[in-house]
Write a protein that binds this DNA or RNA. Structure first.
Length: 654
DNA sequence: CTAGGGTTAG
C-alpha cells in the first residue's frame, strides 16, 4: 500500500501497528512510526494508543512511555497498555502507580484493564500479585470472565498453592467458564504444576471439546510429576485418535523423554515429528539438545546446530546456549567456545553454559576468566553461575578463590546461598583433605543440610578413606534418601578400601534388606552415527568376544609395563584374581574396547558413563591412551576426563 | 479502526 503511494489514514495505522505488536516485529513498527510522524495523524488518540501498545509488546517500555507521555487525550486503551506493559516487565511499583494515576486523571479501568494487569503479573512470574489483583478486582465490583481466569492461573501454578487453585476452579464451575478451552488448559496446567494429578485428570476428562493445548498441558503435567510412562501413553493415544498435534505437542513429548533419561526415545520422537511434517522450532531444539548431550550423540547435536542455522533460529539465545552446553558435554569444549563467541546477545543462560562447560572439563582458570568477563560485560550472575564457578574451583582445589566467590555471592551480589553452593564448598574443602573444615561448614549452616551436601561429604570421605566422618554422612543420607543405592555403595567402598570386610557385609546386608540393588554401571559411545549402550558385566553386545579379547591383550601389556589395576575399588571380598576379572567388565572399559575396534588408529574416543569413573578404569584408560596413541574422553557424572599420553586432565584428582 | 487469556524452553 505504501509502495503504491496510497495515503495512510488514522484507520489503517492502528491495524498495521496491531500486526506488528502481535508478532513483536519492532523494525516494521519503527518504520510505521516514521510514517505516522509525517502523515499528520500523529496526534490521533487511536494511532497514539496503538503506537504505545506496539512498543509495549516489543519490550520497549522507554519508547512506549515517550509516546504515551506525548498523548494529548490519554484514553483507557493507552493507560491499560502501559499498565500491563510495566507489570509484564516486572516493574510492579510503576504498574501500580500508573494504575492509580489513571483513576486520578478520571479514566476508569474496565474489565480489559484489570485482565491486562493480571496477565502482566502472571507473565513476569509474580505469583502473589496476580492473585491479589484478582481479589482486589472482585472487591471493586468487577466480575471476572474466562480471560481473567486463564490470565491468573499461570501464577497460581507457580505458587504451588493448591488451595487457591481449587477456589478458582470452583469459580470456573459456578460461572460456566469450563466451556472455554483456554480456561481448561490453564486449569490442567495449574494442577500439574501444583502436583495434583487427580484434579488434573478430572479436569481433562470433563473437557467438553477436545483441545490440543489441553492435551499438551496433560502430557507436560504427567511428565513433570514423574508419570513418564503415562505421559508417553496418552501422547500415543492422542496420535491414534487423530488429535491435530502441533509443534508444542511434539516438543512436549520430546522434552518429557529428554528430561527423564529416555534420550534415545527423544531422538526417535524428534525424527518422527519431522517425518509427519511438523517443523521443530526454537523451543524444540533446546528440549532435544540435552538428550544429545546426555549420551554424547555429537553427530545428532551437530545436525541440530546445522538445522538451527538453516532455520534462522540460532540467534535465539536458548538455542545457542543449549548448543554451547551440548558441545561441552560431548567433549568439544573448543567447539562450545566457538559457538559461545558467536551468540549475538548473550544472557545469563549463555554465560552459565560456557562457565559450566569449562568447569566440567576441569579448566578452572578458563571458567574463572569467563565468570569475570561476564561481570565486566554487565551481566549479573545468578545462583547457577556461582554453582558453576564454585565447582570449577573445587575440581582444581582452588581454596582461596572458592572461598572468595562464596563470600561475594551474598555480600556483593545479593544472592541467597543455596544448598548446592554449600555442597560445592564441602566438595572443595573435602577433596583437598580438609574433612574437618568441611564438616564444620556443614555444622554451621543456617538451614538443615540436604542430601547433596551430605553426598559431597561422603564422596570426600571416600577419596580420603575416612570411615568415621563417612559413617556420619552416610547415616544422614540413609535417613534423607533411603532408596539411593549409591550412598550404600560409597560407604561400603570406604570400608572395602580399609579391608573392613565385616562392615562391608553389614552395609550390603542393609541394602539387600530394603531390596536395593547396586545401580548398574552403564556407558555410551557413538560410533558411525549410532549410539551403543554397554552395561557392566553384560555380555550381550555382538562384538563382546572381540572387546574382551582386546582388553585382555591390553591388560597383559599393562602388566608387562609394570602397572597393575587398583583393586581397592571392588566392592566384594573376593580373591585378587577374581577382582581383576570383575573390573574387566566395567562398562567404561567395554565402551573404550568397542571404540578401539570400530575406529581407525589414532581416532579420538568419547565415552559417557552414568556413574563416577572407577580408579581402576581410570588407570587402565591412561595406559590405553598412551599405548594406542589415542585421545580418550570419558565423561562421568562429575566431570570430564581427557586421557592423552598416559595422563589425565584431572591429574588423578576427582 | 486501538488494550486482555491457555500448552513446549538452562
Amino acid at each position: 500500500m505504501v509502495s503504491l503511494n496510497l495515503p495512510c489514514d488514522n484507520f489503517v495505522f492502528p491495524s498495521a501497528l496491531k500486526a506488528c505488536a502481535g508478532l513483536s516485529v519492532l523494525q516494521v513498527g519503527r518504520q510505521i512510526h516514521g510514517l505516522v510522524s509525517v502523515s499528520g495523524f500523529g496526534s490521533d488518540p487511536f494511532v497514539q494508543s496503538s503506537l504505545a501498545h506496539m512498543y509495549v509488546r516489543c519490550g520497549e517500555m522507554v519508547k512506549a512511555r515517550k509516546v504515551f507521555d506525548r498523548m494529548d487525550q490519554r484514553n483507557v486503551v493507552g493507560w491499560s497498555a502501559m499498565v500491563a506493559g510495566y507489570a509484564r516487565e516486572g516493574y510492579i511499583t510503576e504498574a501500580m502507580e500508573l494504575f492509580r494515576m489513571m483513576r486520578d486523571s478520571g479514566v476508569e479501568p474496565n474489565l480489559v484493564s484489570w485482565n491486562g494487569l493480571i496477565a502482566g503479573f502472571s507473565h513476569s512470574g509474580n505469583s502473589v500479585k496476580g492473585v491479589a489483583t484478582l481479589k482486589e478486582m472482585y472487591s471493586q465490583g468487577f466480575r471476572p470472565d474466562g480471560t481473567t481466569i486463564s490470565s491468573v492461573l499461570p501464577s497460581v501454578g507457580d505458587l504451588s498453592s493448591l488451595v487457591t487453585g481449587l477456589q478458582i476452579h470452583g469459580c470456573v464451575v459456578k460461572n460456566g467458564f469450563a466451556a472455554d478451552a483456554c480456561v481448561v488448559s490453564a486449569l490442567v496446567d495449574m494442577y500439574g504444576k501444583c502436583g495434583s494429578t487427580e484434579n488434573m485428570l478430572q479436569v481433562f476428562d470433563e473437557m467438553v471439546e477436545m483441545d490440543v493445548a489441553s492435551c499438551n498441558a496433560l502430557v507436560a503435567g504427567l511428565s513433570r510429576n514423574g508419570l513418564v510412562e503415562d505421559a508417553l501413553r496418552v501422547f500415543m493415544q492422542f496420535k491414534r485418535q487423530h488429535v491435530e498435534l502441533n509443534v508444542v505437542s511434539w516438543t512436549s513429548v520430546v522434552a518429557c523423554c529428554a528430561q527423564n533419561g529416555k534420550d534415545i526415545e527423544a531422538l526417535e520422537l524428534f525424527r518422527e515429528m519431522q517425518s509427519v511434517g511438523i517443523k521443530p522450532n526454537s523451543v524444540t531444539v533446546p528440549c532435544l539438545l540435552p538428550a544429545c548431550a546426555n549420551i554424547a550423540a555429537l553427530t545428532y547435536g551437530k545436525a541440530m546446530h546445522c538445522y538451527s542455522l538453516r532455520q534462522g533460529i540460532f540467534e535465539n539465545v536458548y538455542v545457542s546456549s543449549s548448543l554451547v552446553d551440548m558441545y561441552a558435554k560431548c567433549g568439544k569444549i573448543w567447539g562450545a567456545r566457538v559457538v559461545f563467541d558467536m551468540i549475538p546477545f548473550k544472557n545469563v543462560v549463555s554465560w552459565n553454559a560456557i562457565i559450566g562447560g569449562y568447569s566440567m572439563h576441569g579448566k578452572a582458570k578458563e571458567a574463572i576468566c569467563m565468570f569475570n568477563l561476564m561481570l565486566e560485560s554487565g551481566q549479573k550472575p545468578d545462583h547457577i553461575s556461582f554453582t558453576c564457578v564454585l565447582s570449577a574451583c573445587s575440581q582444581s582445589g582452588l581454596i582461596k578463590e572458592g572461598k572468595e566467590y562464596f563470600r561475594s555471592m551474598s555480600h556483593e551480589h545479593g544472592l541467597t546461598v543455596r544448598m548446592e553452593h554449600y555442597a560445592c564448598m564441602v566438595n572443595l574443602l573435602g577433596r583437598v583433605g580438609k574433612l574437618e573444615d568441611a564438616y564444620q561448614m556443614i555444622s554451621q549452616m543456617p538451614t538443615k543440610p540436604d542430601a547433596c551436601v551430605w553426598g559431597a561429604m561422603l564422596s570426600a570421605c571416600r577419596i580420603h578413606g575416612n570411615a568415621t566422618l563417612g559413617e556420619i554422612a552416610a547415616e544422614e543420607l540413609f535417613r534423607l534418601e533411603p532408596r539411593n543405592a549409591g550412598n550404600y555403595v560409597l560407604l561400603s567402598n570406604i570400608y572395602a578400601s580399609k579391608r573392613m570386610w565385616d562392615r562391608v557385609n553389614r552395609v550390603r546386608g542393609r541394602m539387600m534388606y530394603i531390596g536395593l540393588k547396586k545401580n548398574p554401571g552403564c556407558s555410551w559411545i557413538e560410533l558411525k552415527n549410532k549410539v551403543h549402550t554397554l552395561l557392566a558385566g553384560d555380555k550381550s553386545h555382538p562384538q563382546m568376544t572381540q572387546i574382551l579379547e582386546r582388553l585382555n591383550r591390553l591388560n597383559v601389556e599393562m602388566h608387562k609395563s609394570g602397572q597393575f589395576p587398583d583393586t581397592q575399588f571392588v566392592l566384594q571380598d573376593v580373591e585378587e584374581q577374581e577382582k581383576e576379572h570383575i573390573l574387566c567388565g566395567h562398562s567404561e572399559k567395554l565402551a573404550v574396547g568397542l571404540g578401539l575396534l570400530n575406529t581407525p588408529p589414532g581416532y579420538p574416543l568419547r565415552v559417557i558413563k552414568n556413574l563416577r569413573i572407577c580408579g581402576d578404569c581410570h588407570g587402565t584408560i591412561k595406559f590405553i591412551a598412551k599405548f594406542e596413541g589415542r585421545q580418550i574422553f570419558v565423561r562421568d557424572t562429575n566431570r570430564f576426563h581427557h586421557f592423552q599420553d598416559g595422563v589425565c586432565s584431572c591429574e588423578d584428582y576427582w
